[in-house]
Amino acid sequence: MAAQFGGEPAKDSARVLRRLGLLQLDALRRVDRAHRLTCLARMPANASVESVDGGLWSSGPARAFETWVHAACLVPAEDWPLLRLARAKTADRERKPDEAACAEVLAIVGGSEHGVTIREIEGAGPRTDGWEWSERKRAAEHLLWCGELICSERRGNRRVYDLPERRLPQSVLETELSREAILETIATRVLNATGVATTQDVAVYYNLTTAEAAEGLASCGANPVTVQGWPTPAWTLQKDPPAHQLLPEARLIGPFDNLIWDRDRTRRVHDFDYSFEAYKPAHKRVYGHYVMGVLDTHGRMLGRVDLRRQAGALEVIRSFAEPEVDEAHLAAGVASAVAILTAQMKDVIPSS
């Protein structure tokens, strides 16, 4: 928890991204987009949701870029060399888009000085509709994941595809880390972001094989530790115990927050069994459509709350306390956390 949230709230979203190494992206907006919720949970109570995207995307030099890690994620621009192995795996996969479609997309993007959206790439041809991707959309995404294109800007909610050499500093593009250096740095990133992790935790965070994660841990200077109740050994770079109080106030934790998106780790660390039910039929949901965790100031998961943003306010549909958590304690945590998120969204949620 100390590794995730630090000694004090992050001043801006860029600092959150550097602390965590990556931010998972998701398009659902029942409360707000996933990366904003993750950032706001770690930013001051007076931070504004309006400021989050500006610290992450840019119409000029890249601050961060979108790529596939364990899911679609934002990664700091300076970490471009760190994902060379991941890009190579994508480039070498058997199921690839048609080469002619890739060449067409590269020509379209290369012919624009300021990058293009998917609508401009598709032109008058077949259009992407939801998960039904056109051939050019498939090509654009493949090129993005293997590094021939970059997305470091959005226009509205649409990706802007551009050439890496137009967005990244030459020094970043020319940096070529060895396999050993990449795996060692990734292991260090994960341990700094999680505090303590198993080999499998490291592998999941950056979508490595277990063998790759073990290789990185062996060379990063991590200390092997035993964690009570964990079935396998773990690793840490931490030497000093964290402060007893980790957060200034209770906070809401989104479904794709770095704290809980690895569901196996979440059960092991927090004894918090979370599943995302938005895509389940309503009658099959146990807790609700868009359920967020409720975290108290000491890093304890008090429970969960089903929320939606509607009619200029955050509406609490229902809350659920964890076992052995007093309902009054949960209610106080929910009230405080909802009030903070509402204030942070004041620019998009008019006050009643």
Rank of each mutant, 00 (worst) to 15 (best):
R30T: 13
R127S: 13
D201F: 00
R265Q: 05
L143Q: 01
P233K: 07
R154M: 01
V338I: 04
M43W: 00
L22V: 09
A88T: 15
R29E: 15
L341D: 09
G115K: 00
G216Q: 04
D271E: 15
D326S: 11
N223M: 15
V225I: 11
V305P: 09
L149S: 00
V204Y: 14
M43G: 03
D26C: 02
G147P: 01
R166A: 00
I182V: 14
S112M: 05
W235L: 03
G254P: 03
S352R: 03
I349V: 06
D32I: 05
L56P: 04
G54C: 07
V196A: 02
D264Y: 14
G6Y: 10
L314M: 09
S48N: 11
L85F: 09
T232H: 10
K346A: 10
E184Y: 11
A41Q: 00
P169K: 00
Y205W: 14
R15E: 15
E120W: 00
R36I: 15
E8R: 06
Q4Y: 09
Q238K: 01
M301G: 06
W145L: 14
D257A: 05
S13R: 01
E165Y: 07
H289Q: 08
L341W: 02
L143Y: 03
R167Y: 01
T67A: 06
R318L: 08
Y287F: 13
T236H: 04
R138S: 14
C220P: 05
A243G: 12
L252G: 02
G60R: 15
P76Q: 02
P9K: 00
R29C: 10
S351M: 03
P233S: 02
A337W: 04
P61R: 07
H142R: 12
L28A: 11
T198M: 06
V16C: 02
V116T: 10
P76G: 09
T232A: 04
A337H: 04
H70P: 12
L191M: 11
E324H: 12
F320C: 03
A187D: 10
R138E: 15
T210M: 11
R166L: 00
G111E: 04
D257K: 00
T199D: 07
R159I: 02
A64Y: 01
F5W: 04
G111W: 02
L56F: 00
H35R: 10
L191P: 03
A10I: 05
I121M: 08
I186V: 07
P81S: 06
H270L: 06
Q170E: 14
R300A: 05
L144A: 07
A71P: 09
L28M: 14
A64H: 04
G156Q: 09
R189G: 10
E180C: 12
E120K: 07
